[in-house]
Amino acid sequence: MGRGAGAAMVVVSYGSAALVEQNFAGWDAAEHGIDVIIVDCFSSDAEAARVASVCERHGWTPLLLDENLGFGGGVNRGADLAFARGADVLLVVNPDATLDAGAARALVEAAAAEDALVAPTIRKPDGSLWSEGSDMYLDDGSIAGVRHRASHAGRPRLFWLTGACFAISRALWRRVGGYADDYFLYWEDVDLSDRIREAGGALRVLDDVAAVHDEGGTHDQAHSARAKSEIYYYYNIRNRLLFARLRLDPTAQRRWRRTALRVSWGIVLQGGRRQLLTSIAPWRALARGLRDGRRGVRGPRSGS
């Protein structure tokens, strides 16, 4: 589908051409009435060529960047192209997520009708719940699923929606300015949710609409089935402190810095303790993430 499409789906790929083709091969833009734009955040010339080839086979539009702008930067570039081609609604889907045409259309229609960021209920491949929105606790920046609210009663919180799958109107996206480029990976969705609320928009989860997210499909899980990547640890640790610097008052920033080691240690322990005995990567991510977060380092720098 070309110019004049009512909605466009943007998928940001980083070394994920094969995964994109696996998960979206059934998407025909003309049949589904949703334009498809695959953004390649540059990893190599060979990978960019693979993305271009996948798009040619399926009638999608490739957007081949000459540098890796991170997830938020890639979505922003894809959104610019989608709106230039006439889309009124942006549908963002991770390359390791899937949803059927009915779910996509329900998200698009809800976003077109409401001044809201609209997300599905997201499930794991085994059918268990992955996300129905999350809470970020404003006293220390820790995060928990909404089903854990009873155990955190009385703590001030900010509800936010993951960037793994959502729809938003062009008007609302442009009003808030899209994703902030500062984060590169992780926490850009917390930031976007906060700015949407600040701008008078809403955050809505469609309980009867589902997507499936195979978390980790785009990350190296070499250490163990449970361990997460060094990239995951680093950016979650750094960006928690970056969010405080960008979005919170000085008193809250000082409080988050005081709790930084405790909360960051909890992030690393998401991958279990065994990894700490077999790899330097989580320790390095912890040290660099804390250092760069406290310094206010922005963009893709990893502290190396």
Rank of each mutant, 00 (worst) to 15 (best):
G33R: 11
V212W: 05
R123D: 03
Q275Y: 03
L65P: 06
D189F: 04
F24N: 09
P300A: 02
A244E: 06
N23R: 12
S131K: 06
S13W: 04
R157I: 14
G303N: 07
G33C: 09
E31H: 13
K228W: 14
N236A: 14
L286I: 02
N239Y: 06
D208K: 08
R254N: 12
A48R: 13
S151Y: 13
G178V: 02
S134D: 15
L65R: 07
R274N: 12
A227C: 01
N68A: 14
A106C: 08
G141V: 12
D292L: 01
A287T: 12
P300V: 04
H223N: 10
G272T: 14
E56I: 14
S16F: 11
H219Q: 11
G59F: 04
T259V: 15
H58Y: 11
P95A: 13
A84C: 09
F83S: 00
W130S: 02
A202M: 15
L69Q: 09
R294W: 14
R204T: 06
G296V: 14
P125Q: 01
G163D: 13
S264I: 08
G70I: 15
V146Q: 05
P300Q: 03
D194M: 13
L63E: 02
A52H: 04
A101P: 08
A79L: 05
S229F: 10
V268Q: 00
R226M: 14
G266Y: 00
W256E: 12
Q221C: 09
A48P: 06
A260Y: 00
W160R: 02
G217L: 02
L81M: 09
N68R: 08
P125I: 03
A116F: 06
W283Y: 09
M9D: 03
A110F: 08
G217N: 01
V108D: 02
A17W: 06
A164R: 09
W256Y: 09
R57E: 05
L19A: 04
G72R: 04
V89A: 07
Y233I: 07
Q270Y: 11
G271A: 07
D66L: 04
R288Q: 13
L269V: 15
G2Q: 07
C41W: 06
A210M: 13
W187C: 03
L91G: 03
D28T: 14
S44C: 05
G33M: 10
W130V: 01
A52E: 11
S151K: 12
R226G: 12
S44G: 08
V92Y: 10
V54W: 00
P125S: 01
L192D: 07
R238D: 00
G70K: 07
I196D: 01
A84F: 10
I37N: 00
V36T: 05
A8L: 12
D135W: 13
G15P: 07
L277K: 06
R288Y: 10
V268K: 03
R274F: 15
G217E: 13
A202N: 10
S131T: 12
H219C: 07
Q253F: 14
